[in-house]
């Protein structure tokens, strides 16, 4: 008994979704964790204090570029930027746009926040909350396609943070290893894993080739990067935690709340 021509309309099911599992747990968790990170990192960047405890420099303040820095990365400092009422701008803000843009335009984080914050879709087979949708076809989201530029910048940051981690062996009384040194190395390794598992990196370093047999070098690089790339979401979260915790560790040590233990 077909009352309308078959195949003319979608199934008359009104519910926005028919899922029975706890599909909302994941987006809620992402909102809490990402939200907490944004709040903490903004707060830490605003502090403009307790980001250096010889020989450790917080990743939120590296490279430290302005004259008021507690630890100048390149020896000389740029003039401080200051505004009326606000006062001197924390040197963190001079640089945090780099890693910030990298994460903001990351394919994986895009998935995470389009789902959790945009609710487009909040979970699979759950109806989009907003009716209007243009994806990444319009300004500003069309600019997400330039993620690779943020990656170029991120690579520079890896070099700088590796340098900081090397300096973390140089204590005022000579070579040494403290818990902070280990913390900084774990952080830079996780950040490097995140940066080099990036989709743009995988494409730029080899994925763009069509005939791999004629580009054996790029093929090998692509192969390794593809292995890393499969783990990109894991590195995205681990490095997010490590960068926040590294700042927190150095902050607490420099505030005298905890003591940095020397291993060597």
């Amino acid at each position: 008994m077909i009352r309308q021509p078959a195949g003319a309309a979608r199934p008359p099911i009104a519910a926005a979704h028919l899922r029975t599992d706890a599909w909302w747990v994941l987006p809620v968790t992402v909102v809490i964790v990402l939200g907490a990170f944004v709040v903490y990192s903004t707060w830490a960047a605003l502090q403009n204090a307790h980001y250096f405890f010889a020989p450790y420099l917080s990743p939120f303040y590296s490279p430290c570029l302005s004259q008021s820095c507690l630890h100048l990365t390149f020896g000389v400092g740029l003039p401080d930027v200051s505004f009326p009422i606000v006062g001197v701008v924390s040197p963190a803000f001079l640089i945090l746009w780099g890693p910030g843009l990298f994460r903001l335009t990351c394919y994986y984080y895009r998935k995470a926040y389009y789902r959790s914050f945009w609710l487009a879709p909040a979970a699979c087979a759950v109806r989009d909350v907003k009716r209007a949708y243009t994806g990444e076809t319009r300004f500003p989201l069309i600019l997400q396609n330039f993620h690779r530029y943020a990656w170029y910048v991120a690579v520079v940051f890896i070099v700088l943070l590796t340098w900081d981690a090397l300096l973390a062996f140089r204590f005022p009384n000579g070579f040494g290893i403290g818990v902070g040194t280990v913390v900084m190395w774990v952080n830079v390794i996780l950040l490097a894993a995140y940066t080099f598992s990036c989709h743009s990196c995988r494409h730029v370093c080899g994925g763009h080739v069509d005939v791999f047999s004629r580009a054996p070098g790029r093929y090998r690089v692509w192969h390794v990067l593809s292995w890393l790339n499969e783990r990109h979401p894991t590195y995205a979260w681990l490095s997010l935690f490590s960068v926040g915790l590294t700042d927190l560790y150095i902050r607490l040590v420099s505030m005298g709340i905890i003591r940095d233990l020397r291993i060597l």
């Binding site: 394919y107 895009r110 998935k111 389009y114 789902r115 945009w118 487009a120 879709p121 699979c124 087979a125 949708y133 243009t134 994806g135 990444e136 076809t137 069309i142 989709h199 790339n229 499969e230």
Partner: peptide, 22 residues
């Protein structure tokens, strides 16, 4: 392709486990 916001539901449901998005 610009309409796709890489939210990966296609990959999640693919019975052949094709990494459609990545």
């Amino acid at each position: 392709i610009g309409l796709c916001n890489i939210t990966k539901c296609c990959t999640e449901v693919c019975p052949e486990h094709i990494h459609i998005t990545d």
